[in-house]
Design a protein around this nucleic acid. Structure first.
Lengths: 160, 160
DNA sequence: CTTGTTGCAAAGGATTTGCACGGCT
DNA sequence: AGCCGTGCAAATCCTTTGCAACAAG
């Protein structure tokens, strides 16, 4: 059962919850569209002329998806949370350009292996992790050479 | 010049800012005390009977410390920001127990090296990174075997 | 003196919650 | 019928900002 929508439906019934049209619509749009949406972005996508879905429901459903293990909450540089669909067959980390915000998904077997090792060394049973690399993409690095002030500094980017 | 307080003073003068008693006190307490304080915790430590320091000043000073490269903002599981002193001679990542909240600082040369590689492979100039491993420490893993409900699930922990 | 800094309180932004209503089961 | 879920608006929580008084350089 690979389809996240089905998995969501499964989670719902298994836990005595209810499969409402709002939840279906939110999940559907969430899984279909790109990654790393903020609640507000998703809210905007979800509410059509014929749908009157409330913000609160979006928040609640996103949390529910997290609880179901189908989504994950991120805090990158800004203060608003962003959610990404979680497909256990395709875990990944992030590489973010602090100049233009470009967000590349990465995976590195070697790092994953090493993480397990570090955890074991500390007598921890590793359940998950989160890794974000910050840097400048080629274009922004070049731009920076031309006009150093054109880009906000990495330090500033991480400020909030 | 290893002392962060001196470095802070240096940053202040170099940038035409002012070395006020509030800033001195906040920085002093921040660097002396443990890691990963929230603004509120620091605020409580900073305001003594004889000091009337405002919240806003604590927020502002913490930001300033980040800008000076002497502190770093973190968002672990909760929604409030936590700050940690940054000593460039001792970068580290985190290993957190989702059972009891234990927070172990870790460094792994191999991982650091590999991160550079991954960035380079994507034509990124790496400036910094952040990595948090989540798991269960030995005690909590044991506890979980005895009474699985005694601990909040990792998923819940990460919810917010 | 000039300009940055502070404290307070008000403003802001994101997320949660109380509550009455509506809809599954 | 009973209970969960929804929408709305009010409430919270954390953080930022405007402003007048103040203090460092």
């Amino acid at each position: 059962m690979r389809d996240p929508l089905l998995r969501f439906a499964g989670y719902i019934t298994e836990n005595g919850l209810k499969n409402t049209p709002q939840r279906r619509r939110i999940a559907e749009i969430f899984f279909r569209s790109g990654k790393h949406l903020s609640t507000e972005e998703l809210y905007d996508m979800v509410r059509g002329p014929e749908y009157g879905i409330g913000q609160a429901t979006v928040y609640r459903t996103l949390k529910l998806l997290c609880r179901a293990g189908l989504a994950r909450e991120h805090h990158f540089g800004d203060l608003t949370a962003r959610y990404e669909a979680l497909d256990e067959t395709a875990h990944h980390d992030h590489l973010i350009c602090t100049g233009c915000g470009k967000n590349v998904e990465i995976v590195d077997e070697e790092i994953e292996r090493q993480q397990e090792l570090v955890a074991a060394r500390n007598e921890f049973l590793l359940t998950s992790h989160r890794m974000v690399l910050y840097g400048l993409c080629r274009e922004c690095a070049k731009k920076k050479k031309t006009d150093p002030d054109a880009l906000s500094s990495p330090a500033d980017y991480k400020l909030r």
